[in-house]
Design a protein around this nucleic acid. Structure first.
Length: 194
DNA sequence: TCCGGGATTTAA
DNA sequence: TAAATCCCGGAA
């Protein structure tokens, strides 16, 4: 919840399997919070093989597969023993870090030409996981360990008043909880950190 | 072991 | 509005 909002503006870094390549960097612009007493959460019925990671220590990735075709990425939030996660729903590709001469594309992850189809904006939890090639293999990775293939780095926190809270999407239960948070990036920024 | 549904996306 | 299509969880 508070953690969900604090993740907005932080940077998600995708390290390619090829350690030499430049990691892709994305700003987190949309999230949703899920808690243990939340009927819409996978953890609602207690720990299970799939959701057990949510009951573990915070700072780890919870990845699940849904509808037979999409993965969704979450960040585990609550203390060890308590379930809680933040679903990453939207990303924004950031320009390659300076010194990225060489003409390498900012996105080093390439499911072939698929990356071409996907624009700089990644809306939707399933889409962004496909774009970053995130799958169940990333379930449980430490999100604050820079050695991970996928981790979160400090970014630019959104200014006060630029976070919009709305009801969550795509669920059939507890739709009344306004736990979806979006950075209000109007007119090209809001995140113009200067 | 089998069966139904799901925190989604895209296309008609 | 429906289909694509895999994994999880509960029932048998």
């Amino acid at each position: 919840m508070e953690v969900a909002q604090s993740l907005l503006g932080q940077h998600l870094v995708r390290r390619p399997a090829d350690a030499q390549s430049t990691p892709g960097r994305y700003e987190i612009v949309e999230v949703e919070a899920y808690t243990q007493d939340d009927p819409a959460s996978h953890a609602f019925n207690g720990p299970s093989k799939r959701s057990s990671i949510m009951f573990g220590p915070p700072g780890h990735a919870y990845v699940y597969f849904i509808y037979g075709m999409y993965h969704c990425l979450n960040a585990v939030t609550e203390l060890d023993g308590v379930a809680g996660a933040v679903l990453i729903r939207g990303l924004r590709a950031l320009p390659p870090p300076t010194g990225e001469e060489a003409g390498l594309p900012s996105r080093k992850i390439e499911p072939s030409e698929l990356s071409q189809k996907i624009g700089p904006k990644l809306d939707g939890p399933g889409k962004l996981c496909r774009a970053l090639a995130i799958d169940l293999a990333h379930n449980g990775v430490a999100l604050f360990d820079h050695r991970s293939p996928l981790f979160i780095a400090p970014g630019v926190s959104p200014l006060p008043g630029t976070i919009i809270a709305t009801p969550r999407i795509g669920i059939s239960k507890a739709q009344d909880r306004p736990w979806r948070f979006i950075i209000d990036t109007r007119a090209g920024g809001g995140k113009t950190d200067r």
